[in-house]
Design a protein around this nucleic acid. Structure first.
Length: 560
RNA sequence: UGUCCGAUGGUGUAAUGGUAGCACAACAGUUUUUGGUUCUGUUUGUCUAGGUUCGAGCCCUGGUCGGACAACCA
């Protein structure tokens, strides 16, 4: 039973696993409980995904549980819409929470905690204006000082705090502060604000309350109320730990502990809510779920899979130093998963007509092609083949360089799952542009039963001209053209990649593409991984490029 | 001029006083009816100066560099 849960499968532990392992071995806890505590004021992004994987993953590994808790202590910014999208995103990532809680569930309890502090002489009501409180706090290098309100008696404070709760005062007229130490080197300990007045309806408690607890007065106590054993947050909260512990100690409640890790940054994107909001508001992207956004909803629409994202979170691990992870790692994880599950289809983006001169007019053959060479049980789909086919314009060159394994006058290629062809003639229009190729095929080179003895270096994707289905393809690329837009000089928006979206209106796909539902994953042969977009309909198919294939040929060309 | 974090190849992460390992990237080769995939190999690293020790990436001291902290946000 528990001995099995406490046993660690692999030998190397990260620093959080080590803490938990030690706590369990020392008998500090019988089982662990973590929590994922988003504020419902926006959409989750890849950084949250790492945190989700961390919290749920840790609990799973050590046989514990994870609560989903909405940190909804600021009614001005929070909405039910966000609660729902967050729940959907966590579920989509593949996690189930032990309990669904809200900090707002604890408002009565938190209020009682505040009264207890007042009664113990550890909190007071301050009538100062916001600016004065800030000024009296001093600076990181200069001590702050108290004002006359700190001298109020317990009775007076209790009375005033109850009046605050009862709505006797306007926003900003009074606050409740903890009485700690105005000279602390930790600014957060300089009599922090516990409660402020906000006559704003709350998405869950409505107008029941007009005073709301601050983060510091809500978070640790919420952890404690839920018996969270390991409260894991990002590094910028490290200074808050002293306060976190102070409240728990003064209140004498369950000793949850806070541990901090470094948030993960990704190259070629931005992660702050403020910046993402700007991208949306200023229409640099189509919305929060634009496939270029690092939001979970954006990545889902782009075609990333939960498996890939979880794998990514595992691979990058967790640490305590500043970092910026190469987005290439994420792309690797996506390719690795999609390679296993994506159906292969052929789509020609920029068609060039090829006439197979020795193929009978009016005849159509049906050639089987495997749905996924990585999946032995994947089966095949039929590919129509007739006298006129389409190939990619860039797969033909009149004057081919030595390593060009594609089509050129007199050169042979294999058409994937079909025949070997040789190019005999190049037809051009008045402007000298290539309009059509005449080739002949080798009937005994049919895929799977090739007795021709011919050897070719290149294999091309193609579609049958008569049966091809037009579709729209959206080729997404990185949103920014520099690794770390936030660290560059000037406005980060000056570094937006102008070519992050290229729309191909009339790509031609093999007929097996139709009838596919939203979110279906494909590999368009030699092109990349794609998925059908939510804008797609049977009349107008739309595909998003999730990620390109690795392209060593392109890399070689770039070098030359 | 304070307090708190942190520093291992290009990137991320291990090594818990005893052979600096893994992954991505890069490079070379292998396989391949996708210039995809597979498989193999190669290159590249402990911020610095001292100290403790038989032995230091790890412990101690000083320095350097980077980050966080002065919202009635979370």
């Amino acid at each position: 039973m528990s001995s099995e849960a406490n046993e660690v499968p692999e030998k190397s532990l990260n620093f959080l696993e080590e803490i938990i392992d030690n706590d369990l071995k020392a008998g500090k806890h019988k089982t662990i409980l973590t929590r994922f505590p988003p504020e419902p004021n926006g959409y989750l992004h890849i950084g949250h995904a790492s945190s989700i994987c961390l919290n749920f993953g840790l609990a799973k590994r050590f046989g514990g549980g994870t609560n989903l808790r909405f940190d909804d202590t600021n009614p001005a910014t929070e909405e039910t819409e966000y609660v729902n999208s967050i729940k959907a995103d966590v579920r989509w990532l593949g996690f189930e929470w032990t309990n669904e809680f809200y900090a707002s569930d604890y408002f009565p309890q938190l209020y009682a905690f505040a009264e207890k502090l007042i009664q113990d002489g550890l909190a007071y009501v301050d009538d100062s204006r916001s600016e004065d409180i800030a000024a009296q706090k001093g600076t990181p290098t200069q001590a702050g000082h108290r004002n006359q309100f700190a001298e109020r008696t317990v009775e007076e404070n209790l009375h005033l705090f109850r009046e605050m709760r009862d709505g006797k005062y306007q926003d900003g007229e009074k606050v409740l502060r903890a009485k700690i130490d105005m000279t602390s080197s930790n600014m957060l300990m300089r009599d922090p604000i516990l409660y402020r007045i906000k006559h704003v309806p709350h998405h869950r408690t409505g107008s029941q309350w007009c005073i709301y607890p601050m983060y510091d007065f809500a978070h640790g106590q919420s952890d404690s109320i839920e018996n969270i054993t390991h409260s894991i947050c990002t590094l910028e909260f490290a200074l808050h730990r002293e306060l976190y512990d102070w409240f728990i100690h003064k209140l004498g409640i369950f000793p949850s502990h806070q541990y901090e890790f470094a948030r993960r940054n990704l190259t070629y994107t931005v992660m702050s809510k403020r910046k993402l909001l700007q991208l949306v508001n200023e229409k640099h992207v189509s919305g929060w779920d634009d496939p270029r956004m690092p939001t979970i909803s954006g990545m889902r629409r782009r075609g990333y899979t939960p498996e890939a994202i979880r794998d990514f979170a595992d691979r990058i691990g967790v640490g305590k130093r500043d970092n910026i992870v190469d987005v290439g790692v994420l792309e690797f994880c996506v390719r690795e998963h999609l390679n296993k599950i994506a159906l292969r289809r052929m789509v020609v983006f920029d068609p060039l007509k090829v006439v197979i001169t020795n193929f009978p007019e009016g005849k159509t053959e049906s050639l089987p092609s495997e749905n996924n060479p990585e999946d032995p049980d994947g089966g095949t789909r039929p590919l129509p083949f007739s006298r006129e086919i389409l190939i990619e314009k860039e797969d033909f060159m009149e004057l081919a360089p030595k390593k060009f394994f594609r089509l050129a006058p007199g050169q042979m290629v294999r058409l994937k799952s079909a025949y070997i062809i040789r190019c005999d003639e190049v037809l051009k229009n008045a402007e000298g542009e290539i309009t059509e190729l005449h080739c002949h095929y080798f009937p005994d080179s049919r895929s799977g039963e090739d007795t021709s003895g011919l050897k070719v270096q290149g294999t091309l994707h193609w579609v049958d001209a008569a049966s091809a289905v037009p579709c729209e393809v959206r080729e997404y690329d990185r949103l920014f053209s520099v690794e770390n837009p936030s660290s560059e000089e000037g406005d980060f928006k000056g570094y937006i990649n102008p070519d992050s979206l290229k729309i191909i209106k009339n790509a031609m796909a093999e007929p097996a593409i139709s009838g596919t539902g939203e979110g279906q994953h494909f590999q368009f042969l030699r092109k990349g991984y794609f998925c059908s977009d939510r804008d797609s309909s049977p009349e107008h198919l739309v595909f998003n490029r999730t990620v390109t294939l690795k392209d060593t040929w392109a890399k070689e060309q770039k070098k030359a």
